[in-house]
Amino acid sequence: MLDTYREVVTPEGVVLQLRAAGPVPRALAWLIDVAIRMGIMMVAGMVFGLLGKAGMGFYLIALFLVWWFYPVVFEALWKGRTPGKRALNLRVVSGNGGPLGWQAAFTRDLLRVVDMLPLLYATGLVSCLLDPWGRRLGDMVANTLVVHDAPPRGLVEATAATPIPLTVVLRQHEQAALIAFAERGPRQSPARRVELADLAEPLTGLRGEAGVHQLYGLANGLLGRNE
């Protein structure tokens, strides 16, 4: 089965699923970061402009620092996020899913020199398009990965119904599907809802609207609700 996960198995045998991010959101995040840095440099230019010729020196130093250390400092200190990445709910993590260290942050920043060849990150873009986890060359060298952060889940309450205990042993993903049905069922059209519930007839023994309510009840039972 094809998926966009990168699976990492920890020594404890736990499978972590990292949701790798591709070129489109990453490029957008980069654009936002560029805009922020340009804004900072414009303000700095106004301030240092007051100092005349010496201000030019300070301005160039500030340009160097802001341009090259902005990603490093943000990624290392702010859990792998720059403001642009934060806006698109992205995050840089180490290749094994752990947090990003200073060394990796510096490596991926230094390798920008290669990725931006020949113009405007063309090399990085090609690498990002071809790699299954959307990594540019800097990511490969530093062994890092840009992932989609867990989205703030819209809280959807499962439909309330009289809880019914399960009589059949269900596997975990089947239980999850039952609960998902109780959460998302009300947003389906009535006909579709009945169609789905009819598929689960061997479980409920009922068809039509009655089957839908039986499924809601089973889901409430799984959720451990009392009345």
Partner: peptide, 14 residues
């Protein structure tokens, strides 16, 4: 829109 993932699991469960 159509809860395909739920349908798939329900079909296999069936």
């Amino acid at each position: 829109l159509e809860a395909w993932d739920i349908e798939l699991t329900f079909r296999r469960l069936r």
